[in-house]
Nucleic acid binder design. Structure first.
Lengths: 340, 340
DNA sequence: TTGAAAGCGTTACCAC
DNA sequence: GTGGTAACGCTTTCAA
């Protein structure tokens, strides 16, 4: 067997030097032309030669080299342990992504699996992002924020259940969801409230505060809250429904509308009357909930428009705040429908 | 008013030079210690001094500088006009993201709004990704692929309705979905099939081939297909349902399960019997569909596990293929339930 | 109008 | 064992 000859000769990536050589000018001139530097006048014939050479070679500037020289990037880092699957967050993410792109930022979604807190912050800092928008799946500490800022981040924004020192925190307390749900159910006279906790990993950051909210709202009222594990599949829902009567509950808050729909169906199939025997309540106010019979009571939660967040990033990048501000931005309110 | 004094003195980001100075060693030594370079023996006291200095300064290596020096990145670029909102793709994205992270790649989601084809490819190439996985929202051309490869991409993978020359194409022909739906409906004796087309922008890449599949399957059978615009909201669905009898249809393929659910409810509310008068069929096989009454017939579509795609990327990066392979990887089959 | 050269932060080769 | 030095690709100041 003959050796395979080096196929594509591992052709090197064309650089501005190559363009300069082909166009018969210096690298500086190439840079001027390609960046339309206004401070310098270059003759039209030269411009054309440079552009043609770049085109011919398929030259594309090297972002890393550029930002190394510039001393800063336009990277906005969005850490995501996982993209929350719900349509609510999906939409929010899309909006934010789009809005940042429109402001000419490069959005980097950095999956930080397994990394916790400060480790993650270190990993992010390597990219020298000009801003970090953490959606609360990773718990950022004051140390982490400080590390990021020292490595050049002008804006560190957190959206999560608690403020983080040094960061611009948008406090979105998921407990409010639980509180709104519990209040609504109690107003309807329910006193024995089940709380569905998803058994899928990664949802605790939402489910636990929601449970805490329930507990807080019922404390001292004599009502009680009963945590109930459930997976998002029919078997798990059916198993829970099968032992429903033993649980002796007259209401259930099902974490979100999707779990609520699943459980409500399982309850109905098991002969439990909704809402007569048990009230069911979801959260997130998905369109779906209106379509069910009985229609699903839920908790509506206002997320800021992605556009708002993108503008905030842009403002902070332009004028890094002396002191981080904090906003509480979650209004959660019950949306009563037929299931409760 | 007095001028605000320079607050934080714009403290510069610490570099390996700073670490070296503080530890009293050379930059080379710092690099050796921090990267655990095995080819070189460094005394334990020196190592400790270096590490402590790095810790104290909050030093974090600069990824851009590193990759500039290394001549390559570990960036896998995922172009996304928008993240498709459906849970199907959401899950796929998450899996892929996670799997790539596990293989030590940096995942960059690059939103390419407005940019079309080659422009987008150019923008992506600036980041010098080692691989690009395009999910078919942006139409990549042979030129674009070539540009990416010339700028160092070892793997260019497309998942979409058609092969792309030079790229490793996973052909996922959405027409199969329409074909499976039409066949199923015709087997059930339906001949006058409505086809819901979402009016939301950005879904054409899926909806049009699905429609084309319907048309292909009915051609020559005497059955007919009627395109119907609809938005994903109750008003739009109600409006469509209100003129349903005028349309004289005995079946409808509703683009996906979410639109199907919405339309089915509207039809029921308008007094149209499902499936007696009109059969309803969705696509994507969401859990939701099983919970509805009548349960929703759908088209199940196999997406490759994110893990599979990540491994493919890794393999191609290690051994760039001489010739791009193409796979057809979509099996779509009808899942009959009560609504048809 | 164009070119030479310095410097961004890193790593790897080669002396000491 | 450790340290100097060159090089990665780019922009920009300064000089011609």
């Amino acid at each position: 067997m003959s050796q395979t000859p080096k196929k594509s000769a591992e052709q090197p990536v064309p650089t501005s030097t190559d363009v300069a050589r082909l166009a018969g000018v210096s690298r500086a001139t190439v840079s001027y032309v390609l960046n339309n530097t206004s401070a310098v006048r270059i003759s039209e014939p030269t411009r054309r030669r440079v552009r043609e050479a770049a085109e011919e070679l398929g030259y594309v500037p090297h972002a890393a080299a550029r930002s190394l020289r510039a001393g800063h990037t336009r990277i906005v880092l969005l850490p995501t342990a996982h993209i929350p699957v719900g349509p609510l967050y999906g939409q929010f993410f899309n909006e934010l992504h789009w809005a940042l792109r429109n402001l000419d930022y490069t959005v980097v979604q950095y999956g930080s699996l397994g990394l916790s807190g400060d480790e993650a912050a270190r990993a992010w800092a390597e990219l020298r992002p000009v801003a970090v928008v953490s959606l609360g799946e990773i718990t950022l500490t004051a140390r982490g924020v400080s590390l990021l800022k020292r490595s050049g981040a002008k804006a560190v924004i957190t959206m999560g259940p608690q403020r983080v020192e040094g960061a611009h925190s948008l406090v979105m307390d998921q407990r409010e969801v639980g509180i709104a749900a519990a209040r609504h159910l109690m107003e309807r006279g329910r006193r024995r409230i089940g709380a569905v906790l998803p058994e899928e990993p990664g949802l605790e950051l939402f489910s636990k505060p929601r449970l805490a909210g329930l507990r807080k709202a019922v404390s001292g009222t004599g009502a009680r809250v009963e945590p109930l594990g459930m997976r998002y599949d029919e078997e798990s829902a059916a198993a829970l429904a099968a032992r429903w009567r033993d649980l002796d509950l007259d209401a259930v808050f099902a974490y979100n509308d999707e779990y609520a729909q699943l459980l409500m169906r399982a309850l109905q199939d098991a002969g439990v009357d909704v809402p007569g025997e048990t009230a069911v309540m979801g959260a997130d106010d998905l369109l779906m909930g209106k379509l069910l019979r009985p229609s699903l009571s839920t908790v509506h939660m206002e997320l800021p428009p992605g556009r708002f967040l993108a503008d905030l990033v842009d403002r902070l990048v332009a004028h890094p705040a002396d002191r981080a501000e904090n906003h509480d931005l979650m209004g959660a309110h019950a949306v009563p429908r037929e299931s409760s």
